[in-house]
Simulated assay, not measured.
Amino acid sequence: MSIQVHPNAIVDPKAELAEGVFVGPFCTVGPGVKLGARTKLVSHVVIDGRTELGEDNVVYPFAMLGGPPQHTAYKGEETQLIVGDRNLIREHATMNTGTAGGGGVTRVGSDGLYMIESHVGHDCVIGDNVILTKQATLGGHCEIADFVIIGGLAAVHQRTRVGRHAMVGGLAAVVKDVIPYGSVWGNHAHLEGLNLLGLKRRGFSRETINTMRAAYRLLFADEGTFQERLDDTVETYSDVPEVMEIVDFIRADASRPLCLPEREV
Score class of each variant (00 low, 15 high):
Leu41Thr: 06
Ala63Gly: 07
Lys200Pro: 01
His190Pro: 00
Gly198Phe: 12
Phe204Gly: 01
His92Pro: 01
Asn8Gly: 13
Gly152Ile: 02
Val105Ala: 14
Gly76Trp: 02
Asp85Cys: 12
Ala254Ser: 13
Val59Thr: 09
Met1Thr: 14
Arg90Leu: 13
Gly198Trp: 08
Trp185Gln: 08
Phe204His: 11
Val156Phe: 02
Val108Ser: 07
Arg161Thr: 07
His188Gln: 01
Gly152Phe: 01
Asp232Met: 13
Gln4His: 15
Val42Thr: 10
Arg161Leu: 02
Ile179Ser: 00
Gln135Tyr: 09
Gly76Thr: 02
Ala154Val: 08
Asn87Val: 11
Thr160Val: 15
Gly66Asp: 09
Gly20Pro: 11
Gly127Asn: 10
Phe62Ala: 11
Glu235Ile: 00
Phe22Val: 15
Val59Asn: 09
Glu228Trp: 03
Gly170Phe: 07
Gly104Trp: 10
Pro68Asn: 11
Glu19Val: 10
Leu191Ile: 09
Pro13Gln: 12
Arg229His: 03
Met244Asn: 11
Gln158Leu: 09
Val105Gly: 04
Asp232Phe: 00
Leu258Gly: 00
Gly224Tyr: 04
Arg256Lys: 13
Asn195Asp: 12
Ile82Asp: 10
Asp128Cys: 10
Val108Thr: 12
Gly30Thr: 06
Arg251Asp: 13
His190Trp: 00
Val125Cys: 08
Ala154Met: 04
Ile3Pro: 06
Pro61Asn: 11
Ile246Ser: 02
Thr94Val: 10
Ile82His: 06
Arg202Glu: 06
Ala172Met: 08
Met167Lys: 09
Leu199His: 03
Gly109Ser: 12
Arg164Ala: 13
Ile144Ala: 03
Glu264Gln: 07
Gly109Ile: 05
Val46Glu: 02
Asn96Tyr: 03
Leu230Ser: 05
Gly151Ile: 12
Asn8His: 11
Gln80Asp: 06
Ala215Cys: 08
Phe249Arg: 05
Ile131Gln: 11
Asp239Ser: 14
Glu55Arg: 12
Tyr181Met: 02
Thr72Phe: 13
Ala215Lys: 06
Asp239His: 14
Asn57Arg: 06
Val45Asn: 01
Lys34Ala: 11
Leu218Thr: 14
Gly54Phe: 06
Val21Cys: 14
Thr39Ser: 15
Gly139His: 04
Leu260Ala: 03
Val46Pro: 00
Pro261Thr: 12
Asp56Ser: 10
Ala9Ser: 10
Ile126Gln: 06
Thr133Arg: 04
Gly139Arg: 05
Asp232Tyr: 01
Cys259Ser: 08
Ala155Tyr: 03
Val247Arg: 01
Ile116Glu: 14
Arg107Val: 13
Arg217Gln: 10
Arg90Asp: 10
Arg201Gln: 05
Phe26Val: 00
Gly112Gln: 09
Val21Ser: 08
Glu207Ala: 14
Glu235Tyr: 00
Met1Glu: 11
Ile209Pro: 03
Pro13Cys: 10
Cys27Phe: 02
Gly104Asn: 10
Asn87Trp: 09
Thr51Asn: 05
Ile116Asp: 10
Asp12Arg: 04
Gly109Cys: 09
Ala136Leu: 06
Gly67Ala: 09
Met1Arg: 14
Arg213Glu: 14
Ala172Asp: 09
Glu245Gly: 12
Asn129Lys: 13
Ala154Thr: 07
Pro68Phe: 02
Asp128Val: 11
Tyr237Val: 05
